[in-house]
Amino acid sequence: MRLLASAALTGAFAAPAFAGQMTVNVEIPRLNVAEYHRPYVAIWVENADQTSAGTLAVWYDVAMARAEGTTWLKDMRQWWRREGRALDMPVDGISGATRPPGRHDAAFAADHPVLAALPPGEYSLAVEAAREVGGRELIRIPFTWPPAGPGTFQEAGEHELGAVSMTIEP
């Protein structure tokens, strides 16, 4: 699915104006390796049967000449299978540049097109990282939507991801 660009962007950056939001914090670990490239990262919402309920963000080499950065999108293979292969990247509101090691926030307002379209139920936030000449890791954080109250849920990666947390404010 293709998100409405302006809606997604507005949602992300004007969060305080809305009733609720989901904030995802992704730690990209600092790795002591001979050849380091920043990982590609996909963040999406999974239905209970692991189909995709919509992509929230994809960090990849958006600025390479001739869109060459799209060559490695398939390395985030679970995201690629569930939704990426049906998207025509870049997609406004989803695509972003790769991030350096450190902690990175991504905030999505409750009226973000993906979140707003979720029927009440059980979901997982999926965060998948794949690194050139490195590995790949997928983390899932289960959550209920709409949220009954505020909460923070956290999982820890072991290789390509550090701590990944999701804070929900209803």
Partner: peptide, 8 residues
């Protein structure tokens, strides 16, 4: 067998 990109 599974490829992405503009010129695979």
């Amino acid at each position: 067998t599974v490829l992405s990109g503009e010129d695979p």
